[in-house]
């Protein structure tokens, strides 16, 4: 069961990362990178590193994505990569 969770997280990290690269809108890219961080949290918990998982959830997903979105708003909104 744990192996299945780890395998699905690995596969979804790779798929979301590919989607993040080919996504044209920058704001969508930031939200997709939050998905990569979420799967990384599942992997950290599965590999018994709860401290790293909490740090990734709070800093990697939460505050840094919000700061990136606010910076994108300062740049003027509809940027395309």
């Amino acid at each position: 069961m744990l192996g299945l969770v780890i395998l699905s997280s690995f596969i979804s990290i790779i798929l979301i990362a590919f989607k993040t690269i080919i996504e044209p809108k920058l704001s969508h890219t930031i939200v997709l990178s939050m998905g990569i961080g979420l799967n990384a949290v599942i992997l950290f918990v599965a590999f018994q590193a709860p401290d790293v998982a909490l740090t990734q959830a709070v800093i990697g997903i939460g505050i840094s994505s919000v700061i990136l979105l606010m910076g994108l708003k300062h740049l003027g909104g509809n940027y395309e990569s």
Partner: peptide, 25 residues
């Protein structure tokens, strides 16, 4: 809680501080 119980359970000062900052956000 995360900040004060950092030496007993998961987390600590960094994570607790950022959680409080997200509440202020």
């Amino acid at each position: 809680y995360i900040m004060i119980y950092g030496h007993l359970s998961v987390g600590g000062g960094f994570q607790g501080g950022v959680i409080i900052a997200s509440g202020i956000l």
